[in-house]
Computed example of a mutant assay.
Amino acid sequence: MKFCSLLFVPADSEKKFAKARETGADGLILDLEDSVAPPVKAAARATLGGWIDASSGPRGWGFWVRINPFDSGLAMDDLAAVVRPGLDGILLPKSNGGQDVVRLGHCLDALEARAGMAPGHVKIIVVATETAPAMFALGSYAPAHPRLAALTWGAEDLAAVVGSTSNKDESGDWSAPYQLARSLCLMGASAAGVPALDTLYADFRDDDGLVRSCRQSRRDGFAGRLAIHPAQVAGIKRAFTPSPEDVALAHKVVAAFEANPGLGTIGIDGKMYDIPHLKLARRTLAAATEG
């Protein structure tokens, strides 16, 4: 399952869904939460079920659905409408911790059985920083639930909860509370042994800024990024795909350690490499293969 680029698509727009399918995104997240107004959520659910049915055959992208949060009273109706052959996963918003993944997992167990799906097929990505309690529970996703596929984070809902007038500082970077949320998401995902996905880059017209930001994300350890607009997909994929130079060095590091299995430190081209470098090299090669 690929997570380099996941594109949000409103679940009430067939035109946007058709366009999104042609972007090359690794996954489409059909959104029943924030991008669908309350009066049309029921209609969006029904339409979305038909799209999932029509997409149940072979395709090059994952079919994900962001449901409404548990405390909205809408989550079970969302799940009942979308858990069917063709669905790959659920994006769970406003999770308060690992217990919400367990709760969602129980729901999916029953709904998969009803739909005749293989047990455990539907995976879960968690938006892990949208509530105040969630910030104290980033370690609760480890050990990972069998359905847990990735963690991501969000700043807008957290800002509303804590009363921030802005989540950015004067330079346009995340202010301290949101840098903390981003870092804890990354650490929580690492503890659980699942990929961390960076949050949205809001300015979809700023291609250069997006690529710079994504390169920082990859540098810090994120495996991919969420996209808010089809135009962002290409830039995200480009930034998260290891360069030929990165791949060449990774091959050198792996080959050197394989040729010298008894060594913990190896010199290559005048630089010293140890076991953490070997792990990073293998991760680079895996990312290059997935790309």
Rank of each mutant, 00 (worst) to 15 (best):
H121I: 09
V233M: 05
Y273F: 15
V102S: 10
G57R: 02
V126K: 00
G60K: 07
P261F: 08
V233G: 04
I228Q: 02
V233K: 01
M272H: 08
D246E: 15
A25F: 00
P38A: 11
S56L: 03
A25Y: 00
P69A: 11
L91F: 02
A75G: 06
A176L: 15
G163N: 08
G49C: 03
A239C: 06
E245P: 00
L6I: 09
P10Q: 11
A159M: 14
G60A: 07
L151H: 05
D12L: 05
L74D: 11
K168T: 14
L30C: 13
D88H: 12
S140L: 09
V101Q: 00
H251I: 15
V254S: 01
G270D: 09
A160I: 12
R212E: 13
G89Q: 05
I266L: 04
R225L: 02
V247A: 14
A202S: 12
F136W: 12
G105A: 04
G267N: 15
E130F: 13
Y141C: 04
L249M: 12
D26H: 06
A18Q: 07
A234Y: 00
G154A: 10
L28E: 02
A202P: 06
N260S: 10
D109L: 05
A287T: 03
S13I: 09
D88A: 07
V194D: 01
T284A: 08
H251C: 14
A20Y: 04
D109V: 02
M187K: 14
N96C: 12
G221L: 02
I236W: 00
G62S: 15
G139I: 11
T131G: 10
S171F: 04
A137V: 11
L74K: 12
K271D: 12
S5C: 07
P85W: 06
S72W: 03
R66Q: 07
V254A: 00
A113M: 11
I124Q: 05
S166M: 08
D207K: 15
D34H: 02
S55V: 03
L158I: 02
I125W: 11
F240N: 02
K279G: 11
V233A: 08
A287G: 10
R84S: 01
P10M: 12
